[in-house]
């Protein structure tokens, strides 16, 4: 069985065992958080930073649960880990599977593309918030999750559906392989 199909199967069987909710409550709670931060904080950069920080904390906890529930215990191999992130992680925790493309020759950078809006259903950004990265939480999640697996990465949103792009794209760049924080 191909690795992709195997991971998809792991995702389905793990998902069937977990407590579930409708994505609406998640999406709308996230919307309320973003609105609150925009009101609270002085500028959009601070909002983006706060979303990234929240995402980082969530990513650390999610990867912990994901490894425990799936029994996966990946080495810090960027290609394999990114497949787990997309085919298992995003599938279970956001109900979507982003695509991976534009791997560089030494497999240290890749682009994740989201065709579904998922997190940003029903969101329209006013022009005063042009610099808001609504997807920044997801960047933080990826960063936090990969850090737990021993990979320090930089995540950058390179295209945003909310700003007219066809897909929302996140560029993930491996910066350093570290000691994994998580041991099975």
């Amino acid at each position: 069985m191909s690795r992709e199909r195997n991971l998809a199967k792991i995702a389905e069987s793990t998902f069937s065992k977990l407590d579930k909710v409708h994505s609406e409550i998640f999406t709308m709670t996230y919307g309320a958080i973003v609105t609150t931060l925009v009101e609270d904080l002085d500028n959009v950069d601070e909002v983006n930073a706060q979303l990234d920080k929240m995402g980082h904390n969530i990513g650390e906890r999610l990867v912990d649960e994901l490894l425990a529930k799936t029994g996966l215990n990946p080495q810090p191999d960027m290609r394999y880990v990114m497949e787990i992130v997309t085919r298992v992680g995003f599938r279970i925790y956001l109900g979507i599977t982003p695509t991976l493309s534009n791997w560089n020759a030494d497999s240290t950078t890749v682009t994740l593309s989201f065709r579904d809006s998922a997190l940003s259903d029903w969101v329209e950004l006013p022009h005063t918030l042009d610099d808001l990265s609504y997807f920044q939480l997801v960047c933080g999640v990826i960063r936090g999750a990969l850090e737990m697996l021993g990979m320090k990465v930089k995540c950058t949103i390179t295209a945003d559906k909310l700003k007219g792009a066809q897909t929302t794209d996140i560029l993930v760049e491996l910066q350093e392989v570290m000691q994994a924080k998580f041991y099975n």
């Binding site: 998902f15 977990l18 407590d19 579930k20 909710v21 409708h22 994505s23 609406e24 409550i25 998640f26 709670t29 996230y30 309320a32 958080i33 931060l37 706060q50 929240m54 904390n57 969530i58 906890r61 999610l62 649960e65 279970i92 925790y93 956001l94 109900g95």
Partner: peptide, 24 residues
Amino acid sequence: TLKKGRPDIAMSSFSFLFAEMLNY
């Protein structure tokens, strides 16, 4: 429009997000 399907994501997504909001 809102979907009317089955629960489609793991509850921990919501729980962890909610916990972050509480922390904030």
